[in-house]
Design a protein around this nucleic acid. Structure first.
Lengths: 201, 201
DNA sequence: AAGTGTGAAGCTATTCACAGCC
DNA sequence: GGCTGTGAATAGCTTCACACTT
């Protein structure tokens, strides 16, 4: 989130930012910002704050964004299609270079120069492109099998949109995007007696 | 996530589940499951575990899912369209009954019986349907203004897909779905020296 | 005067471990 | 014998507060 704020500050041509100001925009506290950043180095100047462009570069480097990551999109359904067109992935250095779908009706279609590959080509296409990260937008019941397959092909990071928890080896990292759980959390916060919980903790 | 697992167990016609088994499927520990559940009541039987259907009902009630929530989709772009068709929202009791977009080319289109409303109708349509939760899929630069507007119309929960942090009053709850941040977290975990961090913490 | 970096204190969350019930 | 519910112990995270730098 700090990087998102710094992107914003750089667009606004701000040259420095205090932990206080950064905290306000990121939705946290000044002490938290200083602790978080100090974990990776001393990027600020006492009395002045943090210089925006260098701090932004530091954070990008810390996050491993100094390079471009080639990613594969597995599942060319509605959500996959929307993500393919989502501009912010590329802006941050994630380039979708492979699209795979199991449906013969979709295989062979061309999306913005990329031809949708059949499931049978999954291993060969992931390996030939050297894909390390995939975005998984397949139906829940298929997700585990597809995850097993992409891991066998060398993938080490999965952005999982399927509403199931994937079992993966320790050296593979999964991040879940679980939109239904987020809505349910809103329901919990909004249900009538939620005021009590806010008051009492 | 426990509810997701219980949905699964009920489909498999399992009648009881231990904290151990529930933990394994949900990706946590048995002690964590027992602590979490005990916060809301004593749902288990010593020596036996938890009865699946009653526990599922309890969790749905705790989460405020005993009712159907009418929700509005603000922003009928690619991501909004994908979410409109996403079946799991309705399965869990969230029904999209209003769609609003600012683009005159989209206004008036009918999606599955729902007519896309213009931005000018935002207030009246939210109020007349009594909408409390909205799914916000508008571009980042517009998100804050749209959030302010829906809050003024009585909305108390926002599922925000825009990559910005919304400033809202204390009695409004925002949950962010930030797909780019999730990808960046994968990048962080996968970058070459990440092995050190895993070892040392 | 402004504002970082950081030990220490305070707080919250997780894990342990076991009495008690099925 | 199996398994929950829960105090106690531990670990992790956040906030405080201030010495120190610009």
């Amino acid at each position: 989130m700090y990087l998102r704020v710094l992107d914003e500050l750089e667009r606004e041509a701000e040259t420095t930012v205090s932990s206080q100001a950064l905290a306000k925009r990121a939705g946290t506290t000044a002490a938290q910002v200083r602790k978080d950043l100090s974990l990776f180095g001393s990027f600020g100047k006492r009395g002045l704050g943090y210089a925006v462009p260098p701090l932004r570069r530091h954070l990008r480097s810390i996050l491993g964004l100094s390079r471009t990551w080639k990613v594969a999109l597995i599942g060319a359904g509605r959500i996959g299609a929307a993500l393919f067109e989502y501009p912010h992935f590329r802006e941050q250095g994630f380039e979708i270079v492979v699209v795979v779908d199991q449906d013969p009706a979709k295989v062979g279609s061309v999306w913005n120069d990329i031809t949708i590959q059949p499931a049978e080509q999954l291993d060969s296409v992931l390996r030939s492109e050297g894909i390390e990260i995939v975005i998984l937008t397949v139906p829940g019941p298929e997700a585990q099998a597809v995850a097993d397959a992409v891991i066998a092909s060398g993938v080490r990071g999965i952005l999982n949109f399927a509403p199931v928890r994937l079992r993966v080896p320790d050296d593979v990292k999964v991040n879940d995007v679980n939109m239904t759980v987020e809505l349910e959390a809103l329901s919990f916060a909004l249900k009538p007696d939620a005021a009590d919980r806010r008051a009492k903790g």
